[in-house]
Design a protein around this nucleic acid. Sequence first.
DNA 1: TTTGTCAACATGAGGC
DNA 2: GCCTCATGTTGACAAA
Length: 230
Amino acid sequence: MMGATSPSGLELTMAVPGLSSSSGSEGAGCNNNNAGGGCNMRDLDINQPASGGEEEEFPMGSVEEDEEERGIGGPHRPKKLRLSKEQSRLLEESFRLNHTLTPKQKEALAIKLKLRPRQVEVWFQNRRARTKLKQTEMECEYLKRCFGSLTEENRRLQREVEELRAMRVAPPTVLSPHTRQPLPASALTMCPRCERITAATGPPAVRPPPSSAAAAAPSPFHPRRPSAAF
DNA sequence: TTTGTCAACATGAGGC
DNA sequence: GCCTCATGTTGACAAA
């Protein structure tokens, strides 16, 4: 597949309508005004040089031809053009350098490729669309993978929460640092740093050293908690 | 026959 | 108003 970009030396035959659309607001499709309900197509092979050894100037019909014949049968949709490998290669090369063309660049490229500027313009439009589509698909795949790993992580954490809940037996009993007697619940407060319950009537709070030091020397307010405890 | 690809086209939005 | 772009659609064509 991928006719235009296929390197397979396809039989690049095409039918050129007698009336070819022009740039701008050309109508779409064949209006079947021609005899036989057709679009007055004529076949030609864009890979083959034109008779006399010359290449076809405009595979879809030259500009002169367009303007000469437009209006006889009305606007129509030409048969499918297959760009030659060389045309595709040059277009891709231009696209790599720049995803958009200035009118001058378009004109120059059209002349170089023996295409109409409109065809170059359409090619770039479609190429941009394909690029964007591909990017979107890749992003979609990436987000899917993220979703999968996050779902797995979420499951794992939920399991851990369940395990920890099962391990928890009773609320902790806090002893007074002075009397060594259990403190009433009303005397307890939540330590904002570690979110643990501590005695509100303890000695003046001393700013704890950095966490590593705090872990190394637990204070009476922050007894070393079991690793699996909240 | 079905399906995928792609040139060509239509249309609406935005910039100038 | 013209031009360009993004987006969606159509139809021809080739391959499965």
